[in-house]
Amino acid sequence: MEVRTIKVFTTVDNINLHTQVVDMSMTYGQQFGPTYLDGADVTKIKPHNSHEGKTFYVLPNDDTLRVEAFEYYHTTDPSFLGRYMSALNHTKKWKYPQVNGLTSIKWADNNCYLATALLTLQQIELKFNPPALQDAYYRARAGEAANFCALILAYCNKTVGELGDVRETMSYLFQHANLDSCKRVLNVVCKTCGQQQTTLKGVEAVMYMGTLSYEQFKKGVQIPCTCGKQATKYLVQQESPFVMMSAPPAQYELKHGTFTCASEYTGNYQCGHYKHITSKETLYCIDGALLTKSSEYKGPITDVFYKENSYTTTIK
């Protein structure tokens, strides 16, 4: 009895394709271990004539594949690729409408935090270190965002349907971005203890939790000093293409032309909904596939993004 075979390709990165001759009487799992086709788990399936010449994702289970996976995804987590594939199996079914010149995501599976993050990423200057993220990001900007969303979920250790947080998501993504040249110098002034300067680099240099107003941050924000008295913390120097200011959701007025974009969060910790506000020729609110415009805006804002380049204080 002759062994019926077909020729397929296996890959971990969709760049390096490895030619395989597979036995049609055995499952993919018996031949390769966990195997995925377009995100779908085909591990328990036997090869079919229609699979001839198709590319299958496999887990990096030998040295060659491990090197290829690390170079593309910059992670050695053995569960990463499987999590990416199972997320992709959902995100490829989502709709990605162009809204006001940006790629958004039609609401499904509690994905409003991903839509808000995706919209924000198209408006701030950011370059990702893992080629996987950078490639998928370019495709997302062009309207094909399924891979990018699935990668975000995998890097953030999230599953489809789980509630997510924009600030946490951005923080994970910033860790995989090139923020080497970003720098922030802060000064804390206390009447009792004097003053202390701190220099922050990388992710810490672009994120701040405690106030939404970048102007206020430049002037000074009140913080408790270690001595128990009130101290003032203010920005001395900022070198970065953008800054992200966050605070627990509270009524906040966004003035046209003073910011790049913002995240609105309605609801409580267990259950809520994100919308995205962007400042173009007027203010726009993007909620999944829905767009509304207004000249002014007041609502429960939790993150505001500002364009920056270089700032030095005039406070002496």
Rank of each mutant, 00 (worst) to 15 (best):
E2M: 11
V3Q: 15
R4K: 14
I6W: 04
K7W: 10
V8Y: 03
T10C: 12
V12R: 10
D13T: 06
N14M: 02
N14C: 09
I15S: 09
T19D: 12
V21H: 15
V22H: 04
V22E: 06
M24E: 09
S25W: 01
S25V: 11
M26A: 14
T27Q: 09
F32T: 12
F32H: 07
F32Q: 15
G33R: 10
Y36G: 04
L37I: 10
L37A: 12
G39L: 08
D41V: 06
D41T: 11
V42K: 07
T43P: 05
K44C: 14
K46Q: 12
K46E: 13
H48S: 13
N49Y: 13
S50M: 13
S50F: 11
S50W: 10
H51N: 08
E52D: 13
E52S: 12
G53C: 12
F56Y: 07
L59N: 13
P60M: 09
N61R: 12
N61H: 12
T64R: 12
T64K: 12
L65M: 15
V67I: 11
T75W: 07
T75R: 10
T76E: 12
L81Q: 04
Y84H: 09
Y84P: 06
Y84F: 12
M85I: 08
S86K: 09
H90G: 13
K92M: 10
K93M: 01
Y96E: 11
Y96L: 01
P97I: 10
Q98I: 15
V99Q: 00
V99K: 06
T103W: 03
S104W: 03
K106I: 09
W107Q: 05
N110E: 02
L114C: 01
L114D: 00
A115C: 13
A115G: 05
A117E: 05
A117T: 06
L118D: 00
L118R: 10
L119Q: 04
Q122M: 06
Q122N: 06
Q123K: 03
I124V: 02
I124P: 06
L126K: 05
F128I: 03
N129V: 05
P131T: 04
R139P: 04
R139G: 09
A140D: 07
R141H: 09
A146N: 00
N147Y: 09
F148D: 04
C149F: 05
A150I: 04
A150C: 07
A150S: 04
I152E: 02
Y155K: 09
N157C: 08
T159V: 14
V160M: 04
G161Y: 02
G161W: 08
E162T: 07
L163N: 05
D165F: 01
V166W: 00
R167N: 01
R167E: 00
M170G: 04
Y172K: 14
H176M: 11
N178E: 07
D180E: 13
D180R: 08
D180Y: 10
S181G: 12
C182V: 06
C182F: 05
V185R: 03
L186E: 14
N187P: 06
V188D: 00
V188T: 15
V189C: 09
C190I: 03
G194F: 09
V203Y: 11
V203D: 08
M209C: 13
G210K: 02
G210M: 01
S213K: 03
E215T: 01
F217I: 13
K218E: 02
K218F: 00
V221H: 13
V221I: 14
I223F: 13
K229M: 10
A231K: 05
K233E: 14
K233V: 14
Y234I: 09
V236R: 04
V236Y: 07
Q238H: 02
E239T: 10
S240W: 03
F242C: 02
M244F: 00
P248K: 11
E253T: 15
E253D: 12
L254W: 01
F259E: 00
T260Y: 10
E264V: 10
Y265V: 00
Y265E: 00
N268A: 12
N268D: 15
Y269M: 08
G272Y: 10
G272T: 00
Y274A: 04
H276I: 05
S279Y: 01
E281H: 00
T282Q: 11
T282K: 12
Y284D: 07
D287N: 05
D287T: 04
G288E: 00
L291E: 12
K293Y: 03
K293E: 12
S294F: 15
E296S: 14
Y297R: 01
Y297T: 06
K298Y: 11
G299Q: 01
P300T: 11
D303S: 00
V304M: 15
Y306A: 00
Y306C: 02
Y306T: 00
K307D: 06
S310Y: 14
S310K: 06
Y311I: 06
T313A: 14
T313H: 13
T314V: 13
I315A: 15
I315D: 15
K316C: 15
K316Y: 15
